[in-house]
Design a protein around this nucleic acid. Sequence first.
DNA 1: GGATGTGAATGCATTCACAGCA
DNA 2: TGCTGTGAATGCATTCACATCC
Lengths: 231, 231
Amino acid sequence: MDPTRIDPIPNPAVRRLSLYLRQLESFKRKDRRTVSSKQLGESLHLTDAQVRKDLAYFGQFGHPGIGYRVDDLIAQVRRILGTDKIWNVLLVGAGNLGRALMAYNGFDAKGFRLVAVFDSDPSKIGKRQGPFSAEGSDASKPKRFFVIQPLSELKSTVEKMGIRLAILAVPPDAAQELADQCVESGIRGLLNFAPVSLNIPRDIAINSVDLAVQLEQLSFQVNFSPLVQLG
Amino acid sequence: MDPTRIDPIPNPAVRRLSLYLRQLESFKRKDRRTVSSKQLGESLHLTDAQVRKDLAYFGQFGHPGIGYRVDDLIAQVRRILGTDKIWNVLLVGAGNLGRALMAYNGFDAKGFRLVAVFDSDPSKIGKRQGPFSAEGSDASKPKRFFVIQPLSELKSTVEKMGIRLAILAVPPDAAQELADQCVESGIRGLLNFAPVSLNIPRDIAINSVDLAVQLEQLSFQVNFSPLVQLG
DNA sequence: GGATGTGAATGCATTCACAGCA
DNA sequence: TGCTGTGAATGCATTCACATCC
């Protein structure tokens, strides 16, 4: 009817896209040149049909009789996910988790760069965190460090550095208030580690990681998965 | 046909159960005595029908005209998730993320207790980590610390302490090998923070958290959500 | 009135199965 | 032969709508 109507893309397909990318990068490290939907699927415990359908939502990337060329597909998936360009990311919260995130240096290879850290605790403002050296990785890499900024500088920093993504690693009580400040400052996507449900405008992307929730899921599965039939 | 056949429980329903619990605990802190499916749903951006159906998979917990009694429902959901009893949890990996997890003290209130930490790095073995004091929380609480154990003690510790859950916070290259060791030691559920797809037996529960995947999902949504129609 | 629990209806996502291409 | 891309069929999950109860 409406020719401008685009086929809806299943959310689960987008989630799997990230897994395909991760797996493809692993294949590339092993110098694999091509991979079939069957092989890619098996490595992730998915069916070949699932893999083909997911990728086909976004274009025709495969070659009948051959499979998918690893390099090409990596480039395509990065483009689709938007990580072919670098995203500047900020962090709110310089507590235990925040420090672990600052020290984590797997961001850059994935297209994300942590560029600023904020905290509301006056005793932390202005303090330098780092330098962080890569654990178990090339020690000759340039060491990074961060100077903790006050929230009063949030908006200006977001604008100055063109930051669109924020990671929230703060106590639960403070999370909503700080999420609001991020949104007001122009942030377009939030990764929330606080164990609370945040209210944010519909046009802002959000993703939450709650450690307790993850463990509870394991608890349930370990206890009851053999007894109750899971769907 | 088969009277022993139990209605399959949708996986998404189990995931939401954890969110209901979190939200109910928040309502309890605000001294709410009862809550309706509509109110609980709105706080999590879900429909009331969704909430009722999810809870009804597990029993009849509500009261027509009243709603759900907060205390009762908390107890029921905890029982369903299996967190009415304490789970001993071990951690593999005393790196940056591992240290953040050791310092995190939100476990206990949720029914999980971190009781042992392992690392393969000989220079870390025997070292004490901590004491950890609760940030922004009651400083009078007993301070905890951990002595890093070698992997050779994994199995005996799992057996001695009745540990069934493990958190894997290790580099990607080591993750599969260490997951295997956990399984061999009797671990029944794994929470994996390494950015790799693990192969484990079907009867072992697994849950993975990959920071890059989370950020990629945001990247996609921010870039294309207004353009492409998401399902 | 105000709320639950639940079959029935709808809407999504996955899988099947096969035409078509290298 | 080996593999993709894709309509059609199936299987799940969500929503509707209403009988039922406080």
